[in-house]
Design a protein around this nucleic acid. Sequence first.
DNA 1: TTATTTTTGTACCATTCGGTACATTTAGAA
DNA 2: TTCTAAATGTACCGAATGGTACAAAAATAA
Lengths: 206, 206
Amino acid sequence: MYYLVYNVFMKTETRGRPKTFDELEALTAAMHYFWNHGYDNTSLDNLLEAMQIKKSSFYATFKSKEAIFSKSLVLYRESMLAQLNKLNKEIGPKQTLLTLTDMIINELQESGKVKGCLLVNSGQECYKKYSQLSEQIALEFGFFQDIFTTFVREGQRKKEILNPKDAKKISGRYMNTLNGLIVSIQAGITDEQIDNIIESLNEILE
Amino acid sequence: MYYLVYNVFMKTETRGRPKTFDELEALTAAMHYFWNHGYDNTSLDNLLEAMQIKKSSFYATFKSKEAIFSKSLVLYRESMLAQLNKLNKEIGPKQTLLTLTDMIINELQESGKVKGCLLVNSGQECYKKYSQLSEQIALEFGFFQDIFTTFVREGQRKKEILNPKDAKKISGRYMNTLNGLIVSIQAGITDEQIDNIIESLNEILE
DNA sequence: TTATTTTTGTACCATTCGGTACATTTAGAA
DNA sequence: TTCTAAATGTACCGAATGGTACAAAAATAA
């Protein structure tokens, strides 16, 4: 069972001076900073500035850099899941997956760079370095794989996706191609090849 | 025009005490260390130990960490190119590309981890951080894309590859899928999905 | 008011980072 | 043998890293 970062019902009774900052807001800011800059390339000072809190408050609330990164991974999954489910209700599973691709490419054209997937970015970074985080990343990665599979299966049931292959296989290829696209962009792929990969993404979901 | 790391003909006349270490050997050791550990996660002390030289000799010969990494990128391209061309002569272009996949997977099964592609690894790492290196990585990336395209084209001419699509498109999808596979493995993909992606790699080159 | 709790600010810590300075060896050229 | 260029060894540098210690201030419950 996957756990949640913040359960709204578990708010404890405050006895002394109440928190002046919103814990979830601060964590969200941290998550975005990690997403943009990676784990190692995010210093504590960077985090404090992004989160708008002081060092003492940080350690009192979040314990350590590794701990808040771990929480960021969970928040990432939660917020992506919410976003995907919302899209799914509005435009259906197939268009949701295609929209995901669009979002990444638009990101590239708007800011000249692409954030990529927090899991893939940090997965590579932590791979031979932080075993604890690596394990968590692998779990989250599997979680996303399952979500995508559900979407593909639903798309097949609704006849949006006509490919009769196993939904697991289709979602696996979709996800792999998307991850490849992101790192290829970061490695300096040409625009012509970007279009080529997007085309192949569409074919996978046909 | 791409330049070479070491031109065997440009050996200079030694006047004073001659070098006691082989410059190319030392560079090769550095390249492998970078390949295994990434740029930031390779400290100077790591390099010195891997290269078996002292700090003073290092700076006298290679100037800086960034400079030797840049040279490592060139050496990487040169040695990969030599290896691929050798394979091509022995088993033909299509089998060469498939062997590349095998090599990566064997690497995983033998040591439990995969080095990946130096360009993709460091491309992601340098992406928003070292603009100079990023540019070089993009150039090298294009170079590999061209090699693969040549191989696909040759495979088509020899009827090893029957897919009539533009060789550029095929090689682009092959390379993208392979890159996706590597980062997916590093992010913790399941064995079942690894097989699925390998299958898709074979289909691309059918 | 008093007790409690969490805030903030400042100072500090050991470690590591890439890189430099410089004196001392060493080995070939002359 | 002497000169010279390049090797080596050691010591050091400022900056940045993640993290700690602790006192003072502030806000609430009792």
